[in-house]
Design a protein around this nucleic acid. Structure first.
Length: 695
DNA sequence: TAAAAGTGTCATGCA
DNA sequence: CATGCATGACACTTT
C-alpha cells in the first residue's frame, strides 16, 4: 500500500482532502485525520481528466466536460473545526465556507472538496485482488507532503487474495513493510517512467524538495504509526466489525486527546449541521454510514463491500462509488493545466471508461475481473500518494453517498415537472451525459454535473435540501453563473411530455414512471410530504412568495411582483408555471364542481319528472274511474229513458233499434239506429256492449 | 387486487 | 397578443 501522508502544519495536521460527492456515481468512505483547516471547494462540475478510481478496480476518467469557467470554478471556503477555534481564539467562529455560502444566495448542493485528493480504489496487484488506497496530495499552497509509501502492488499479495488483502490492507501493509521494507520515495521513483511521469503530474508537489523532506519525516511517523496500527489491528483482527469500529473509535478518542487531533468527516458533517443556515441541512449522519473500521475493511471482499454499501446507504439508490481523483489543486482549478494531462493516460482511461459503459449498471456489485493490467499499474502509480497513516491513525468512516441519478434528482424529475420552457432546444447537460454514455462511472462523475444541477435547481437554492440525506454538494458563487446556466439549460429542456423514453431516461425525466412518486415520497420528510409539488419546487428554488400568493394574485400585482424582485429566469419560469398550474387546478376543480352540479341537477330533474309522471298517472287513473262512473250513470239513465218510452202503438221502444240523439237546439229525439251518424252509432254500440258485459 | 372515484395537469378553444 | 376560464383527455393516486 502506498499512502501519502497529509502535510502537517505547525498547529497540527492540515489535511486537504478532496471529497467529490457525485450525485450519481461517487461515494466516499473515509475518515481522515483532519484538524485545523478544512477547505471545502465546490466543483461546479467534474473536470476533464478527473480520474475515477472505482472500488471495483476500474479506473475511469472524465472524458467530456464543459469548459472550466474562466472566473474560476472552484469555490473555496474554509471550515474550522471547533478544536481549531479553541486553539485559535482569533479564528472566526464560523468557517469561511459558511460565510461565503451564505453570501451566495444561489443554489448550491453541498459537496465537499478538501484540497488534496483522496483515492479509494480496489485496483490490486492481481486481477482478483483489491486494495484500498487513500491518497492525500498536498495542497499546492500548503507545503510538502509526507509520504509514507508502500507498494501498491503489494497490497494484495498472493493474487486472488483480494478479500484478505482488502480487509487487512493496513495490517498487510505493515507486514509487507516488515518483510520487505519498502522505500516509499524509491518506489515512487522506481516505478516505470510512465507511471512516474504520471505521478509527477498527479502528485504535483509531491516531488518538491519540501515534499521529499516531509515524506521522510512522515515515513518515520508512518513507521511508528504502523507499529501502533499493527498492534491495534492484531487486537481487532478477529473481532466483529462493530467491535472493530469500537476499537477504532477509542483509538480516535485517543488521537483526539493526543497530539494529533482527530477530525472525521462525521465531525465535519456535524459541524455543518450545527450551523444555523447549515449547508448540509438535513444531512443525516445515518446516511453517512460508518465504514467498517477502515477503507480496507470496506474493501475486504466483494460481498462485504456490497453489504456495506447496501447498509451504508439506507435508500434504494443505486450505489455507485468512485473516488474522483485529481492531481492537485492547481491542476484542479486550472482548466488549462488540466488539459495538460497526458493524452495517453486520458485515452487509456477513456477506453476503460468506455469499457465501463458496457457494464450493466454501475452499482459495483462486485469486483470486475477484467481490469486491465496496464490500467491497474497506472492506477497503482497514481495511487502512490497514499499515507498509511491515514488509514492507520484515522477512524475510517464511510461517507456513503451512493447516488442514483434517477433518485437524487427526483425533485426536478418529478413526474410532470414542467418548467414551462421551450421544448425544442437541446439539453446541453444531457448531451454531456450522452457523450459519455449515460451509465458509466465516468459519466456518473460527469453526469453528476447535471445531476448536481438538478440539485442546484431543486434542492440547493437558498440552501434547501429536498433530500438532505442525499444532497451533499455545495456550490459557490463563482460557479453560480456557470452552474446556474447549466441548471437552467437543463430545466429548460426538461419538458417531459414529448420526449422519447430514451430521452426521458437519459434526462432522468419521467412523466409517467410507475412507483416513482412513492419512491420520491420516501425521500420526503414529513414536512415536505405535506407540501404540494409546486410548493416543494417553490421552496427548493427559494421563491419568496407563497404558492397561494402566486396563484391568487391579480395579474397586475403578479407582474409587478415579478418585476420588483430580482428573480432568475428559472424562478420566474417556475412562478409562472405555478400560477398557471394553480389557476388551472382551481379551474379544473370548478369545472368538476360545475360538472358535478350539472349531473346532480340533472338527477334532481329526473327525480322530479319521475314524481310528476307518477302524479299524472294517478290523475289519469282517477280520471278514468270518473269517466267510467259517468258512463255507467249515463247508461243507467239511457236505460231508464228507454224503459219509459213508448211508440205510437204503446209498445216499449227497444234500445237496440233506436237511440237517443241530441239535436243542435238542445232537444233530444229518438232516432232509428240505421239513421244515426256512424260515429254515434259505433259509440252507442260500444256502450251497449259494455253494458252487456257488465250485466 | 381490480375498479371506481378523485386529482393534477396539459392542450385547446373561447372570450 | 396576453390572460383567464372552461373543458376534454390523460396519467396518476386514493378509496
Amino acid at each position: 500500500m502506498k499512502y501519502l501522508k497529509p502535510w502537517w502544519s505547525d498547529g497540527g495536521s492540515l489535511f486537504h482532502l478532496t471529497i467529490l460527492l457525485s450525485l450519481a456515481e461517487l461515494r466516499l468512505d473515509l475518515d481522515l485525520d483532519l484538524d485545523l483547516d478544512l477547505y471545502l471547494l465546490f466543483p461546479p462540475r467534474t473536470l476533464l481528466g478527473d480520474e475515477l478510481l472505482l472500488r471495483n478496480g476500474q479506473t475511469s476518467h472524465i472524458s467530456a466536460l464543459s469548459p472550466f469557467p474562466a472566473s474560476g470554478g472552484w469555490g473555496r471556503a474554509e471550515l474550522l473545526h471547533p478544536k481549531c477555534w479553541e486553539r485559535d481564539p482569533a479564528a472566526p467562529p464560523e468557517g469561511r465556507l459558511l460565510r461565503e455560502v451564505r453570501a451566495l444566495g444561489v443554489p448550491f448542493i453541498p459537496s465537499i472538496r478538501v484540497d488534496a485528493w483522496l483515492v479509494h480504489s480496489v485496483a490490486a496487484g492481481d486481477a482478483d485482488g483489491a486494495h484500498a488506497l487513500l491518497g492525500a496530495a498536498a495542497a499546492s499552497s500548503a507545503g510538502g507532503v509526507g509520504a509514507g509509501v508502500e507498494g501498491v502492488s503489494q497490497a494484495a499479495p498472493g493474487g486472488g487474495g483480494g478479500p484478505r488483502a482488502v480487509q487487512s490492507s493496513p495490517l498487510a501493509a505493515g507486514e509487507e513493510e516488515e518483510k520487505a521494507p519498502a522505500e516509499p520515495t524509491a518506489q515512487v521513483s522506481d516505478a516505470d517512467g510512465h507511471a512516474s511521469e504520471e505521478n509527477e503530474v498527479l502528485r504535483g508537489v509531491s516531488h518538491s524538495p519540501q515534499h521529499e523532506e516531509n515524506e521522510q519525516r512522515s515515513s518515520t511517523q508512518k513507521e511508528k504509526s504502523l507499529q501502533q496500527k499493527n498492534e491495534d489491528e492484531n487486537k481487532v483482527a478477529d473481532k466483529p466489525a462493530w467491535e472493530a469500529e469500537k476499537t477504532t473509535e477509542s483509538r480516535s478518542e485517543r488521537y483526539q486527546n493526543g497530539t494529533d487531533s482527530f477530525f472525521s468527516l462525521e465531525d465535519l458533517f456535524q459541524l455543518l449541521s450545527s450551523q444555523p443556515e447549515n449547508l448540509l441541512e438535513g444531512v443525516s449522519l445515518g446516511d453517512i454510514a460508518p465504514l467498517p473500521r477502515s477503507i480496507n475493511d470496506g474493501m475486504n471482499s466483494p460481498t462485504h463491500y456490497n453489504v456495506n454499501f447496501s447498509e451504508a446507504v439506507s435508500h434504494d439508490v443505486s450505489l455507485h462509488e468512485a473516488m474522483l481523483r485529481c492531481s492537485d489543486n492547481t491542476f484542479r482549478r486550472d482548466p488549462v493545466a488540466r488539459t495538460s494531462q497526458p493524452q495517453e493516460q486520458i485515452l487509456q482511461l477513456s477506453s476503460i471508461t468506455n469499457t465501463e459503459q458496457t457494464l450493466p449498471g454501475t452499482n459495483l456489485t462486485g469486483f470486475l475481473p477484467f481490469v486491465d493490467n496496464q490500467m491497474r499499474n497506472l492506477s497503482q502509480d497514481h495511487l502512490y500518494d497514499l499515507d498509511i497513516n491515514i488509514l492507520d491513525e484515522t477512524n475510517l468512516m464511510s461517507l456513503a453517498t451512493g447516488f442514483d441519478p434517477m433518485e437524487v434528482s427526483w425533485l426536478l424529475e418529478e413526474p410532470g415537472y414542467d418548467s414551462g420552457l421551450s421544448l425544442d432546444s437541446s439539453n446541453n447537460s444531457t448531451s454531456v451525459i450522452k457523450s459519455n454514455s449515460s451509465h458509466s462511472i465516468c459519466e456518473g462523475a460527469t453526469g453528476s454535473s447535471s445531476d448536481l444541477s438538478h440539485h442546484d435547481l431543486e434542492g440547493a437554492v437558498g440552501g434547501y435540501c429536498p433530500e438532505p440525506s442525499k444532497l451533499c454538494y455545495m456550490n459557490d458563487k463563482s460557479d453560480s453563473h456557470f452552474h446556474g446556466d447549466l441548471v437552467f439549460q437543463h430545466v429548460s429542456h426538461n419538458h417531459t411530455y414529448h420526449l422519447e423514453p430514451s430521452a426521458l431516461e437519459s434526462t432522468s425525466e419521467s412523466f409517467s414512471m410507475p412507483g416513482k412518486s412513492q419512491k420520491i415520497s420516501r425521500y420526503l420528510n414529513d414536512t415536505d410530504r405535506n407540501l404540494s409539488r409546486d410548493e416543494r419546487r417553490a421552496k427548493a428554488l427559494h421563491i419568496p412568495f407563497s404558492v397561494d400568493e402566486i396563484i391568487r394574485m391579480p395579474v397586475d400585482s403578479f407582474n409587478s411582483m415579478l418585476s420588483r424582485h430580482y428573480l432568475t429566469d428559472l424562478q420566474v419560469s417556475l412562478i409562472r408555471d405555478i400560477r398557471r398550474r394553480g389557476k388551472n387546478k382551481v379551474a379544473a376543480q370548478n369545472c368538476r364542481k360545475r360538472k358535478l352540479d350539472v349531473i346532480l341537477n340533472l338527477e334532481d330533474d329526473v327525480c322530479s319528472l319521475q314524481a310528476k309522471k307518477e302524479t299524472l298517472k294517478r290523475e289519469q287513473s282517477q280520471c278514468h274511474k270518473a269517466i267510467n262512473i259517468m258512463k255507467q250513470k249515463l247508461h243507467h239513465l239511457y236505460c231508464d229513458v228507454f224503459s219509459r218510452l213508448r211508440d205510437d202503438q204503446g209498445r216499449p221502444v227497444s234500445p237496440n233499434q233506436y237511440a237517443l240523439q241530441c239535436t243542435h237546439d238542445g232537444s233530444v229525439v229518438i232516432v232509428p239506429k240505421e239513421l244515426m251518424i256512424p260515429g254515434q252509432k259505433k259509440e252507442n254500440q260500444k256502450g251497449k256492449r259494455k253494458n252487456e258485459k257488465k250485466n
